[in-house]
């Protein structure tokens, strides 16, 4: 092997590595900024619902509030309880935050704008979102506190239950698409909002959204951290940045599930009306608008609904969503088969 060929390979490899790091940063940095401002927007929306002003002191309109909060969390002391399991106690928030970030590798932001365009994108997202529960359950156990442990047990049961119906929702969508690739899912919905899957699969969209609320432990399903009974649930013992990682991970997960909802049901990066003035807008903007809409519904729900009781939560997951989504999978398969709409590979 000649010397310049070797050099070519090393340079090429290095170039690839640099490109990959740049791509990861290009996704992660805007995501973290979005997470920071999601906390701000969330508080502003609740404030508006409750006729308050919300954060308005730090910076103009309180816009620097998320950075002030972040700085506070970084500068505070991280307290590890003396009876806690030290290693797992520190690892748990890292797992919670990391699983919320790595899932973004397969999310297509525009046509071809995706870090890893893998064939099993939907399954990858589903697999990673099912790992999120470990951060919570390990945190609850390692804290060695009854409130944290009860919160973790509730959360584990809740997330495993609602994953089942999310799985069936994914199966329905991929029956209609004929591919597990997320870009293919979006391309299958091209041609205006009347081609998006939320219209024919409206019940599944509703089930997906409610399950997403349960997956991210948001109101009305925020039992794992119901403050009236469990202090703060699984993160009772956490302080400073270890708490901050849970907090950021929760918001990153919300944004992730909104992105998944936008891809599966709202046509991803597609413009709602496929004609001239609308198609000039870049796909990323449409995608961001759709995510923002779903996130607004997340906050709206939190400001409006009371918390479910635990038995109601389990009943809804296993006795309502599971049969309905399973039935809808069978119905979709039958309609596709007998209507002659089975997607050709």
């Amino acid at each position: 092997m000649s010397a310049d060929l070797v050099q070519f390979f090393t340079v090429n490899w290095l170039g690839q590595a640099i490109l990959m790091v740049a791509q990861c940063l290009a996704v992660t940095v805007p995501l973290l900024v979005a997470v920071a401002y999601m906390t701000y927007v969330d508080r502003k929306i609740w404030a508006a619902i409750q006729l308050r002003r919300g954060p308005n002191v730090v910076g103009p309109f309180g816009l620097l509030q998320p950075f002030a909060d972040g700085l506070k969390l970084v500068l505070k002391e991280t307290i590890v309880p003396s009876s806690a399991n030290g290693v797992l106690f520190i690892i748990a928030p890292m797992i919670a935050f990391m699983t919320a970030l790595v899932a973004w590798a397969v999310v297509p932001f525009d046509n071809g704008w995706v870090i890893a365009d893998i064939n099993v994108g939907i399954l990858y997202l589903f697999a990673i979102s099912s790992l999120g529960v470990y951060g919570i359950i390990i945190a609850g156990w390692a804290s060695n506190s009854k409130y944290a442990f009860l919160g973790a047990l509730r959360s584990a049961a809740q997330m495993v239950s609602y994953e089942v119906s999310i799985g069936f929702v994914l199966i329905t969508v991929l029956l209609c698409v004929g591919s597990l690739n997320l870009s293919d899912v979006v391309l299958a919905q091209s041609g205006g909002f009347w081609h998006w899957f939320f219209l024919p699969l409206l019940p599944m969209f509703v089930i997906f959204f409610v399950s997403a609320l349960a997956e991210t432990n948001r109101t009305p399903f925020d039992l794992p951290m119901s403050e009236a009974e469990l202090v703060a649930g699984f993160h009772t013992e956490y302080s400073a940045m270890t708490f901050g990682l849970f907090f950021l991970g929760e918001y990153a997960n919300m944004i992730l599930l909104s992105a998944l909802g936008a891809i599966l049901f709202l046509g991803g990066w597609m413009s709602p009306i496929p004609y001239a003035p609308f198609t000039y807008v870049p796909g990323v903007v449409w995608f961001a608008l759709k995510i923002a809409f779903l996130l607004f519904v997340f906050s709206w729900t939190k400001g409006t609904l009371p918390r479910y009781r635990y038995d109601q939560l389990m009943r809804l997951g296993w006795k309502v969503f599971l049969p309905v989504s399973l039935g809808w999978v069978v119905l979709t398969a039958a309609v596709l088969q007998f209507g002659g709409w089975v997607p050709k590979p």
Partner: peptide, 14 residues
């Protein structure tokens, strides 16, 4: 990952 890590092992841990 989905079946064993995401579901079975969670119940084990539980």
């Amino acid at each position: 990952v989905i079946v064993y890590v995401g579901a079975v092992a969670v119940l084990f841990l539980f």
